Simulated scan of single mutants.
Amino acid sequence: MTLPVLSNDMSEAELDRMVEKANAASAFLKAISHEGRLMILCHLVSGEKSVTELEELLSARQAAVSQQLSRLRLEGLVLPRREGKTIYYRLADDKPRKMLECVYDLFCGDDD
């Protein structure tokens, strides 16, 4: 993958596309910048979880977990599924998994 390079000879359409992509990346990074949201995504990598399961895994109150799930849902990172009174969440696509792998490599990999 080659990173884009800003240059004076870029067309207005190319520049607009780059700004659009930068806005999307910024929104994504803001969504995952909260420790609670990041931990929710980490737990969902292994599969779908109910809100109750996430509360227990995070040792957090239901209101706090629901608030963070709402933000992740708004950003399109998780998808809900209702089964009776229970709501389950899963990753919406592979983007959060790829991001978590990158974060792991940067902050949890070997310190060599």
Score class of each variant (00 low, 15 high):
Met1Leu: 12
Pro4Asn: 09
Pro4Thr: 09
Val5Ala: 10
Val5Tyr: 03
Leu6Asn: 04
Leu6Trp: 07
Leu6His: 04
Ser7Thr: 15
Asp9Gly: 04
Asp9Lys: 11
Asp9Asn: 13
Met10Cys: 08
Met10Trp: 06
Met10Ile: 06
Met10Pro: 07
Met10Gly: 10
Ala13Cys: 03
Glu14Cys: 05
Leu15Ile: 10
Asp16Pro: 00
Asp16Ala: 15
Arg17Lys: 14
Met18Cys: 08
Val19Trp: 04
Val19Pro: 05
Lys21Trp: 01
Lys21Ala: 15
Lys21Ser: 13
Lys21Ile: 10
Lys21Asn: 14
Ala22Cys: 04
Ala22Met: 09
Ala22Tyr: 04
Asn23Ala: 15
Ala24Cys: 03
Ala24Thr: 12
Ala27Thr: 12
Ala27Cys: 04
Phe28Tyr: 14
Leu29Pro: 01
Lys30Asn: 09
Ile32Gly: 12
Ile32Pro: 02
His34Phe: 02
Glu35Cys: 03
Glu35Pro: 12
Glu35Val: 15
Gly36Asp: 02
Gly36Met: 05
Gly36Ser: 06
Arg37Thr: 00
Arg37Pro: 06
Ile40Ala: 06
Ile40Phe: 07
Leu41Lys: 07
Leu41Cys: 10
Cys42Leu: 13
Leu44Ser: 08
Val45Phe: 06
Val45Asp: 09
Ser46Asp: 11
Ser46Glu: 10
Gly47Asp: 07
Gly47Glu: 06
Lys49Ala: 13
Lys49Ile: 05
Lys49Asp: 00
Lys49Trp: 00
Val51Pro: 01
Val51Met: 08
Val51Leu: 08
Val51Ile: 09
Thr52Asp: 11
Thr52Leu: 07
Leu54Gly: 01
Leu54Val: 03
Leu54Glu: 00
Glu56Arg: 12
Leu57Gly: 00
Val65Arg: 01
Ser66Ala: 12
Ser66Ile: 00
Gln67His: 13
Gln68Met: 05
Gln68Pro: 00
Gln68Gly: 00
Leu69Trp: 01
Leu72Cys: 06
Leu72Ser: 07
Arg73His: 10
Arg73Asp: 04
Arg73Gly: 02
Gly76Leu: 09
Leu77Trp: 05
Leu77Met: 13
Val78Asn: 05
Val78Ala: 06
Leu79Gly: 05
Leu79Asn: 06
Leu79Pro: 00
Arg81Thr: 11
Arg82Thr: 13
Arg82Cys: 01
Glu83Met: 13
Glu83Leu: 15
Gly84Asn: 08
Lys85Thr: 14
Ile87Glu: 08
Ile87Gly: 00
Tyr88Asp: 04
Tyr89Asn: 03
Arg90Gln: 14
Arg90Glu: 11
Ala92Thr: 04
Ala92His: 04
Asp93Leu: 08
Asp94Gly: 03
Asp94Leu: 14
Lys95Trp: 05
Pro96Gln: 07
Arg97Cys: 01
Leu100Trp: 02
Leu100Glu: 08
Glu101Asp: 11
Cys102Trp: 09
Cys102Arg: 12
Val103Tyr: 13
Tyr104Asn: 15
Tyr104Glu: 11
Asp105Cys: 07
Leu106Asn: 11
Phe107Trp: 13
Cys108Ala: 14
Gly109Pro: 05
Gly109Trp: 03
Asp110Ser: 14
Asp111His: 11
Asp111Phe: 10
Asp111Val: 13
Asp112Ala: 15
